[in-house]
Computed example of a mutant assay.
Amino acid sequence: MRRGTVALAGLLFATTASVSGPAAAESGRPPGEPGDVGALLTELRALHQQTGAATEAFNETEERLVEQRAEVDRLTARLADTRSGLADARRTAGALAAAQYRHGGAADLPPVLRLLLTGDDPARALHDGTVARRAASAQLAEISRLTEAESQAAGLAGEATAALDEQRTLVERQRAQRDEAHRRLDEVAGLLAGLDEERLTELATLEERTTAEAQREFLAEHPPTDDRPGSAAGQRALDWALAQRGKPYEVGAEGPDAFDPAGLAMRAWEHAGATVPRTSARAWERLPRVPLDQLQPGDLVIYHDDASHIAVYAGEGSVVHPPAPGEPVAVTPLAVLPVQGAVRPTTRA
């Protein structure tokens, strides 16, 4: 692929309807042929979003898998503790039974005859018998409780293990979806590589104009408030994210040498003392939301209706993120993708 083609492919995914359906229809060529620029751009844009969504789905499944494994470990430990307690209780019960056996059949005699035959102090014998009966009763109750607990723990552990197997299957499915999206993306990038320099320049100019227009519309509706000072934590997160510029996009990467969008956001705020979910969808769901006209440096901007992309707000209407597969961490206009909203992490006390 020629120098600059990969960068162009990464930028063109934001191109909107101005280069879609009608242009393809007018060309008279089937979608996918090198000359069908409108169809190629539309497919490229869709594939970038699909790849990001597949990556986020893969990351989300990985997170659920980690949680499921922790639950399996917890239930397995609970089962082991219950079985250990049950074994101790059964040993104690066996010792009581052995003690009764060693006293011959005295335990089965009426209390008055046992007193006459033992020759022990009557008061002590009555006390010991009462204690023994209470101990035996308590031990039987403990055995019953632990037996029921063992059954419940074993059932829960079995359910957790079954769920873990389902999660592993889901991970493989998501990985296959991610790999398929990347394969299709490579196909479209290959078609773009077949275009001549004049057409590439034309497409780049069109993309820049479209992005600039989207940016103007966004800022007109949500004027930036950069005159307001942000938090020290937000600035630390932004400074750290900016220091990663130039590092490559890699699916599932959390640094230090490569990142995906959510991995960069998570690590940036980790260095600022806050916990950010591993996926942009979880960040959108769990973190405090902030109006788009009140953005501060370090805030996290969420993109697409499915919240499948995330970027760190850099101030003055820009964000830092790896924009798409094949694109390194960079500062871009905030409106380079359809904006869903924004969230603001909170630092630990």
Rank of each mutant, 00 (worst) to 15 (best):
H103L: 03
G129P: 11
P111Q: 13
A89W: 00
S151W: 02
A70K: 07
A160G: 09
L116N: 07
R78S: 01
I143P: 10
D81G: 04
R114F: 04
L86V: 00
P122S: 06
A107W: 06
G85I: 04
E150D: 00
L65V: 08
R124N: 14
R133A: 09
L117D: 09
R145P: 07
A95G: 02
G119A: 05
R64D: 08
G158T: 14
R64N: 10
A93C: 06
L117V: 06
A157S: 10
Q152A: 10
A93L: 12
E142I: 03
D121N: 03
Q68H: 02
D120K: 15
E159G: 11
T92Q: 13
V112P: 10
R114W: 05
T76H: 08
A99Q: 01
D120E: 15
A138Q: 10
D128Y: 08
L96G: 00
A125R: 15
A160C: 03
T147G: 10
S137K: 04
A153D: 01
L65Q: 04
R90S: 08
R90C: 07
S84I: 02
V66F: 11
R91V: 08
G155E: 14
Q100N: 01
T118D: 03
L146T: 04
L115E: 12
T130G: 12
L126W: 06
R114M: 05
L164C: 11
D121G: 07
R133P: 00
P122W: 07
A141D: 15
S84L: 08
L156C: 09
A162V: 12
A135T: 14
L115H: 12
A70H: 09
